[in-house]
Every structure is written in structure tokens, then in C-alpha cells.
Design a protein around this nucleic acid. Structure first.
Ligand SMILES: [Mn+2]
Ligand SMILES: [Mn+2]
Ligand SMILES: [Zn+2]
Ligand SMILES: [Zn+2]
Lengths: 135, 135
DNA sequence: TATAAAATTGTAATGATTACAAATTTAGAT
DNA sequence: ATCTAAATTTGTAATCATTACAATTTTATA
């Protein structure tokens, strides 16, 4: 995966900050927050500003190479994987996992008259590791 | 539906504010925000405080008679209908509709090892009214 | 009625996000 | 290589939702 090329082919000029932020998102599939992205990258890019992280993520979203994960009402997470998938958050460890899902099995009623453009599925519970943990 | 009784049977003392807020939520199925609830009720309860709305909704949620709808990353909506259902937000008019859904058709993979306690399904697109509107 | 507990209220504090203008970097023309 | 304009990044201030907290009011009980 050539990140600069990916940005360019999506009409985003590949500045250093943009490449590093996208690379971070693509490598770290744990759906980080702005705070996490910033604090993990500011070491490698000492001049990095949190405003740039916000601006850059907005550009990514507007150009369709990133989306938000709002599984919790008090934190916005970001995800560069655009293939359709669901999310599972463990109430114990707080981790957010990707979940493969087959939405074709979904059966709606009102939906006949609506035009659905995006489907978000958020699951919560206990992850495998936390289930097998001794308390 | 006797709201005071409903609160009492869920271990919530039925104060005037709590009754009115729950009644509002139950009658207005459009998933209002704190701001909407407050501004719509302050006429009838002139002493009402926004803090009370926040406190009361937290009590409702902790006692399982209300839940949040976080279909948008910049607004928290509230819902007193606890029967399982999905939500659809129209990108045009902004309304959030209830959607009957059969989650039994959902087919997961990783889920085998996870314990799912809650499922939230959020859909976005265009509602019937906006689809048939002339622009 | 007197007293204590519970609920409500108003204000201040916090934290995330956005607005905005200055500084820096980039790209193109000469 | 130098100049200039546009784009990008940065830092700070403003905004907005939510929470903390102490004072006030209401409710329950003796
Ligand atoms: Mn994901
Ligand atoms: Mn609903
Ligand atoms: Zn876990
Ligand atoms: Zn609509």
C-alpha cells in the first residue's frame, strides 16, 4: 500500500502530515481518537498541531477514504478501512474490534420506502479475552 | 400508560420533572436532544434547569427505561422506546425514524467468541418524503 | 412543626471541536 | 535560483455540550 499514491488518487495532496496520519490510521486498526493519533504522531512530527489532525481527518472523510465510528456517545473514533464491516466494543477492556458482517440478511419494513445509503452496525458486550479472564 | 407508575416500578421516584421529561420522551418519538427537551418543557415548568434534564436522563438510562441514539457524531438523542429497533436518519430533512428490524438474520463471524449484549443499527439516506420532494 | 434526606437549581469548570489569522511550505513563473 | 501566489500547517481564541459542585428548595418522617 503506497499511501501517497492513495491520497493522490483521491484528490488529496500528499503532504507529510497527511501521509503519516493516513498511514497511522491504516496500520492501527483499533479505531483511534484524535487525541491518540496526535499523541502517537507528535514524536515523529514534533511540529504537529492537533488542529491539523482535525483538518486532515475532515479532508479524508470528505473524500471518502476515512469514516467515523460513533459507537460511544462521548468519543469519536476514526477508521480508514472502507470495506463494509460492523464494530464491536468490549465493555470491559474498551477495545473496538472490526466484525465481518453479512448485511444482506437484514430484514427491514419501513425501509421499502426509504433510500438507505449507509449502514452502521454497533455491537457491545464482552470480548473473548475478557470473557476468559479470571477476576 | 401511567408514567408515574412506570417510574416507580423502575425504582425512580416520580417527581414532577421526571414525570414530565419521561412523558415528553414517550410522546415525542422523534429522538429529541437535551436542548429540545429542555426548551419544549421550560414553558410548562418555568423553574426547569438544563442540569435537571441531564441528571434525569442519566437516571433513566441507568435504570434501563431510556437509551441514547448516537447516529450522528455531534449530537446525542434520547429514546424511551426500549423494544429493539433500528434507526434511520434522513440526510435531507434530518429526521430520525424508528425502523422495525429482524436482527436474527444478522450473520457474524468473530461474534462466535464474543458475547453480544447490545446491538445498535443506524441507517442513513433519504426518507420517503424527501425522495418525492421536487427540488 | 422540626429535621434530615432527596431532588432541583444555577454557576463554574472541563473538554472536545471549530474559527481564524499568522507563519510556513509548496508549486509555478521568470 | 529567485520571486510570488496559493496551499498547508500551526497556535490561539472562541464556542458548545457536558459535568462538577455547592446552595436552595422540596419531600418524607418523626
Ligand atoms: Mn473498523
Ligand atoms: Mn427509536
Ligand atoms: Zn475485552
Ligand atoms: Zn427526509
Amino acid at each position: 500500500m503506497d499511501f501517497a499514491t492513495h491520497l493522490t488518487s483521491n484528490n488529496i495532496k500528499p503532504s507529510l502530515q497527511r501521509i503519516k496520519i493516513f498511514e497511522y490510521l491504516y496500520e492501527n486498526r483499533d479505531h483511534p481518537t484524535v487525541e491518540t493519533i496526535y499523541s502517537d504522531l507528535v514524536g515523529a512530527i514534533p511540529t504537529l498541531s492537533k488542529t491539523t489532525v482535525y483538518n486532515t481527518l475532515k479532508i479524508f472523510i470528505d473524500n471518502g477514504i476515512t469514516h467515523t465510528v460513533t459507537i460511544e456517545d462521548n468519543e469519536v473514533r476514526y477508521d480508514a478501512i472502507m470495506e463494509e464491516h460492523a464494530h464491536f466494543k468490549c465493555n470491559d477492556c474498551g477495545n473496538v474490534f472490526d466484525v465481518e458482517i453479512d448485511v444482506s440478511g437484514l430484514n427491514f419494513k419501513e425501509i421499502k420506502s426509504f433510500k438507505v445509503e449507509k449502514t452502521n452496525i454497533y455491537l457491545k458486550g464482552k470480548c473473548n479475552k475478557c470473557l476468559n479472564k479470571i477476576n
